[in-house]
Design a protein around this nucleic acid. Structure first.
Length: 521
RNA sequence: GUCCCCGUAGCUCAGCCUGGAUAGAGCACUGGCCUCCGGAGCCAGGAGCACAGGUUCAAAUCCUGUCGGGGACACCA
């Protein structure tokens, strides 16, 4: 938040006065907000920071809600929210219900979030779930901020790997050795059995099609259990019925296409060109990515696009953005979230997973073992750009050591006490909500709309998880220290209202993460 | 060799973008708390910014370098 000031002594005449930036304090002992401008101006003004702070503090006009304004060494201005103001916020929060924390910042801006998009050559690995959760929750957060969101799954339904899968199934059916680089997992045998049962011809094209269908139904099943759904399935093959030639023509006209060594290349600004169509006639992933992203922006008209990719695709980001820029599409409209590797720790054993290596623990297995809530919450307790270790034993523990239970229990406790308290009689004595635990709880939950907005701005869903953890702690402390239902009717009514507002907030936070908010556990 | 991410408590991680006032949490460990709305909880305790320079009134945060872990640099997908 910014405050305007009309003058600062010593500030050079004729130049614009700086806005006074009011920031949240890191330490609650210093109040809720602080201003550090005096420290920053001290040198320019050649005045002691404390004197500037004093002057500004006297001159500042503050919005409603603030009580104390204090100057502190070496030159801070500290602002504290008035308890009476905090208390009046409770009814609106409880009243807003699911709308509490939502905003219209996006104003209908169309954003596509594309995530998972795993090759349909095998069931999902647990590592895919991280992208699924980050993508899904990013989409939910943007929706909460009023953006118009489409969730898309990009399906690589053509190309070498798909043919290879068909050949692998065929080999299985005919009891021949698996081809070089082919697929040999148990699911290939299952698909082969299905093909035999259906009487599908043992030829790669038909088998590839069946394989994709089989794998996709498993993928959808796993994602469904995780609470993740997509609005649109986009087929890579659809890029190759005219759009490719049209785009090729455009790039040719722009002088960006060269042919050499029997391949077709994209001329980059750097010294290394990139292959689009290989000598064997197959397109590269780069070419598909160009066609696909041009389709998103130019054909379908998304204002912004968020891609959730595995970190091993890091090298692609720059190239795709360059190609977009060449075609006149502002690359800043594309945001790529690179999801770092996940390893699974089970006791002493650690299994590292890499999409490329194609080995590891299946998502299905983890869903069976720890359940969707723990999978989602654990992924969200890490920022996406850090590698992480997933501790299975901790996640599956149905006890206090598990952070997902801590948050859910806070919700269940409030739900329980609200039921226990029954109908509220008489007006609440809001002014009596003045213990440190009650005020702390109010302060934490009033941050909720900012948390949502910041998580949306930065595409950082983990902020919601960390907020949830903090809120849960404030709820547990309040609950332990302030008995809600007593003979004192006005106080009971006030604490019931506080409980309702807090329950609303934590329910919304859990909801935004796609984690269930149980009324009893 | 070039580029990207990471290095914070015994372990797993926030905080870094936008520098501020004693650096946070969970797990583990130690000691307390159930006549009372749910003890899956609360209260108390110790311990940390990889290293070296620089910028600044102020550096975990910005800059440079070093070391360590992971990833990317294919007519692979």
């Amino acid at each position: 938040m910014r405050q305007a000031v009309t003058s600062i002594s010593g500030w050079p005449a004729g130049t614009a006065l700086p806005a006074v930036l009011v920031e949240r304090t890191q330490n609650p002992a210093h109040g809720d907000y602080s201003v550090t401008l005096p420290l920053k101006l001290a040198r320019t003004l050649r005045r002691p920071p404390m004197a500037i702070a004093q002057e500004l503090a006297n001159a500042m006009a503050l919005p409603a809600g603030f009580g104390r304004i204090a100057v502190a060494a070496p030159g801070f201005i500290n602002l504290t929210l008035e308890p009476t103001w905090l208390q009046t916020q409770l009814a609106p929060i409880a009243e807003a219900g699911e709308r509490w924390g939502r905003s219209e910042l996006g104003r209908g801006t169309r954003v596509q979030v594309e995530f998972v998009s795993a090759n349909p050559t095998g069931p999902l690995l647990f590592s895919h779930a991280r992208g699924a959760v980050v993508g899904d929750v990013s989409a939910r957060i943007l929706e909460a901020c009023g953006f118009d969101i489409q969730r898309e799954y990009y399906l690589n339904d053509k190309g070498k790997q798909i043919r290879l899968m068909g050949e692998s199934i065929q080999a299985r059916m005919l009891n021949r050795p698996i081809p070089e680089g082919g697929y040999s997992g148990d699911y290939i045998a299952e698909i082969a059995a299905e093909a035999t049962a259906r009487g599908t011809a043992p030829e790669p094209p038909a088998l590839s099609e069946l394989g994709i269908e089989w794998v996709q139904s498993r993928v959808q099943e796993d994602l469904g259990r995780l609470g993740v759904r997509h609005d649109n399935l986009f087929l890579e093959s659809s890029l190759y019925s005219g759009w490719d030639q049209e785009t090729m023509r455009k790039l040719r006209d722009l002088g960006r296409i060269v042919e050499k060594d029997g391949a077709i290349w994209f001329k980059t600004a750097g010294d290394k060109d990139e292959v689009l169509i290989k000598r064997d006639g197959y397109p590269t992933y780069f070419w598909s990515d160009i066609l696909y992203h041009r389709d998103k922006f130019e054909k379908r008209g998304f204002d912004r696009v968020v891609d959730v990719w595995g970190a091993d695709h890091q090298g692609q980001v720059g190239r795709v953005k360059e190609a977009l820029a060449v075609m006149g599409i502002d690359p800043a409209r594309l945001a790529v979230l690179l999801i770092q590797l996940v390893s699974v720790k089970r006791g002493e054993e650690t299994v590292r997973m890499s999409r490329r290596a194609g080995v590891g623990v299946s998502l299905k297995e983890m869903l069976d073992e720890v359940g969707p809530d723990a999978v989602r919450y654990f992924f969200l307790l890490r920022s996406a750009d850090a590698q992480m270790e997933f501790d299975v034993e901790l996640a599956r523990r149905q006890s206090s050591e598990n952070p997902v239970f801590y948050a859910q229990y806070a919700h269940a406790r409030l739900a329980n006490v609200l039921g226990f308290g029954g109908e509220v009689v008489g007006p609440p004595a809001l002014e009596r909500l003045n213990t440190e635990w009650e005020l702390e709880l109010m302060r934490v939950m009033l941050r909720w709309p900012d948390v949502v907005r910041e998580a949306a701005d930065a595409f950082e869903p983990h902020r919601v998880a960390f907020f949830t953890d903090e809120l849960a702690a404030a709820i547990h402390r309040f609950y332990k220290n302030c008995r809600v239902v007593t003979d004192d009717a006005p106080l009971t009514a006030a604490r019931m209202l506080l409980s309702r507002a807090a329950r609303t907030t934590i329910a919304n936070a859990l909801g935004l993460m796609g984690v269930s908010a149980p009324h009893r556990m």
